[in-house]
């Protein structure tokens, strides 16, 4: 991977580089999520799901040899040098870094990208009476979703889809609009190779991928202003609960005012795991109530516990971020 594209993830203050790797690849633990919250990198969760540890380490090594980053071995942290900060600013000025990306709002960008490509391909091919083609989506679930969406859509909805798509893309900054439109294709329009796109936009392959995510996340943000029943909006399912399945279950019981002792008693999981579920909710649920009486009682059982300490850290960080 192109090493300098990692620069926006670091700051002049030391950051745990391994936690950043886990955030980027979407490894959900309280420790990683808390690091994401602390470094203001939570939106970049699952941003590079296929990033290999070896490639990440190699990129960090390169940035260190360029004097952009400085490692502190004993704390396993890395911070930007003044030179690195300058390079970071220059990179951000090139507007290829996806500033509006938010995993918790948009979900997995790879799936959303496939949904966009496939829905456009399906409508375009239908309009051009092309029935035989390979779908531009590799995920069977996305294929099944778009198939259902297409069969539900009548001619009027398809027309509205095209209209909303053009209006939304046209509303993007021109470079993002052209990048997005040139990435679409169907039997009627063959599109352009990524290599050619990169050449024309003066971007490397990795920069092109990044800028494409920037275009997609801006697009995802903008379609939230369309009416709920807009056929374009229906292509992209609303982001699911930010919580993992276990945490969602525990948090639902907690919100239903079940006493903690009952939750613990009725669960097959250890109390420590259930407490971690609450911590996950404290990090990810926007209106998590830190002041609720049951929560205060839970803290009071052992204010020095891992749970109480972490919760206090999360609350302080969220206040700071707000």
């Amino acid at each position: 991977m192109q090493a300098d594209l990692l620069l926006p993830l670091f700051s002049r203050k030391p950051r745990r580089y391994q936690a950043i790797y886990y955030i980027l690849t979407g490894k959900r633990t309280v420790s990683n999520l808390l690091a994401g919250l602390t470094y203001d990198l939570l939106p970049y969760f699952h941003f590079y799901p296929k990033l290999l540890q070896a490639d990440y380490q190699a990129a960090l090594q390169q940035l260190m040899s360029q004097q952009y980053l400085k490692v502190q071995s004993e704390t396993k942290t890395i911070r930007l040098t003044a030179l690195g900060q300058l390079a970071q600013v220059q990179l951000l000025q090139r507007q290829i870094w996806p500033q509006t990306y938010d995993y918790w709002r948009d979900g997995d960008w790879q799936l959303q990208w496939e949904r966009l490509l496939l829905s456009v391909q399906v409508i375009s091919n239908y309009q051009h009476q092309q029935r035989h083609y390979a779908p531009l989506a590799t995920q069977p679930l996305v294929q099944a979703e778009i198939r259902q969406w297409f069969y539900r859509s009548g001619r009027r909805q398809q027309h509205q889809f095209v209209k909303d798509l053009i209006a939304t893309v046209t509303g993007l900054p021109k470079d993002l609009a052209d990048l997005l439109a040139n990435s679409l294709r169907s039997n009627a329009y063959a599109g352009t190779s990524d290599f050619q796109l990169g050449l024309d936009l003066n971007l490397t392959a990795d920069e092109l991928s990044l800028k494409r995510i920037a275009a997609l996340s801006q697009f995802m943000h903008d379609i939230t202003f369309l009416p709920q029943q807009s056929p374009l909006r229906q292509v992209f399912p609303a982001a699911p609960s930010p919580l993992s399945r276990g945490a969602e279950h525990t948090y639902a019981l907690w919100q239903a005012d079940q006493p903690w002792s009952t939750i613990v008693q009725n669960s097959y999981q250890k109390e420590g795991t259930l407490l971690e579920h609450l911590l996950e909710a404290a990090i990810l649920v926007p209106d998590f109530n830190f002041e609720s009486l049951p929560l205060q009682q839970l803290i009071a059982v052992n204010p020095e516990s891992y749970f109480a300490q972490r919760l206090s850290e999360i609350q302080a960080q969220r206040r700071k971020n707000d």
């Binding site: 439109a181 050619q196 796109l197 050449l199």
Partner: peptide
């Protein structure tokens, strides 16, 4: 080998 604009696509 030249890119088209969104409006041309």
């Amino acid at each position: 080998t030249q890119l088209l604009s969104a409006g041309q696509i």
